[in-house]
Amino acid sequence: MLFLVNIIVAGLLAGLMYALVAIGFVLIYKASGVFNFAQGAMVLLSALTFVTLNEHGLPFWLCFIITVGVLIVASVLIEFLVLRPLVNRSPDTLFMATLGLSFVIEGLAQLVLGTDVHQLDLGIPDVPLKLYGLQVSDFDLFTAAVSILLVAVLALLFGKTRVGISLRAVADNTLAAQSIGIRLPHIWRIVWSVAGVVALIAGLLWGNRQGVQFSLSLVVLKAMPVLIIGGFSSIPGAIVGGLIVGATENLADIYIGPLVHGAVSDWFAYILATAFLLIRPNGLFGEKPIQRV
């Protein structure tokens, strides 16, 4: 029994990491209806920038601020060069554009900052502790705390600030928001910057665990099933989706894996998401789209 609980807990903690990446998607999807494939590339860019600055001896807080600055510049450029010319095009076209964008960001980031694997140490021990028999490390607890904090900050940002309220207005009805004077490009720049900061946090946590390297950009692929299960337009959905994917993936690896002679975590989440799409196409927390004919 304890074994089972441990598997589930480990899966939930891994799922939290997926959820952190997925939140970045949700922000951009809500504000602009774009499925931003480049979010994974943003994770890589932010983590690479941070770790390179850190290796040059800059203190932690300065690295963080400079990286956020880089991400804001990137967001402004993306809005100007990619989103603005493609306004009013189909969601599929925008999806393809962000796919191209992800290749540009990955290429540029590695061209400028190199392709080496960097070690990133946030100074939090990642050694499993025994808490009532549960295998949990300090780092796991830290990740959980950061996730909760992040969701709380985002909830405050969207619920209480002027920017957040106009952002929700854009998400709710773009045309109406524009007609009362909300500047769409401005909102996009802000949303992409906030998503960039979320990517930075995700990148730091992922990088601490598996090193900062190209494979970081591949977490975007695992975020896909998370979003499908949780719903593309809901932050709580992203968290719940992440937890479900993490836990079931771990369970499947332990209990289904031996039956089929191999690790199933490569593909299990996608099959799960596909099954989910067939039953509940909008995800657990997603809004039901109203289609006009």
Binding site: V82, G100, F103, G107, L111
Partner: peptide, 11 residues
């Protein structure tokens, strides 16, 4: 450079 060229060309 290759992915930059491909990505930029696609956009």
């Amino acid at each position: 450079i290759e992915p930059i060229i491909f990505g930029a060309l696609i956009i």
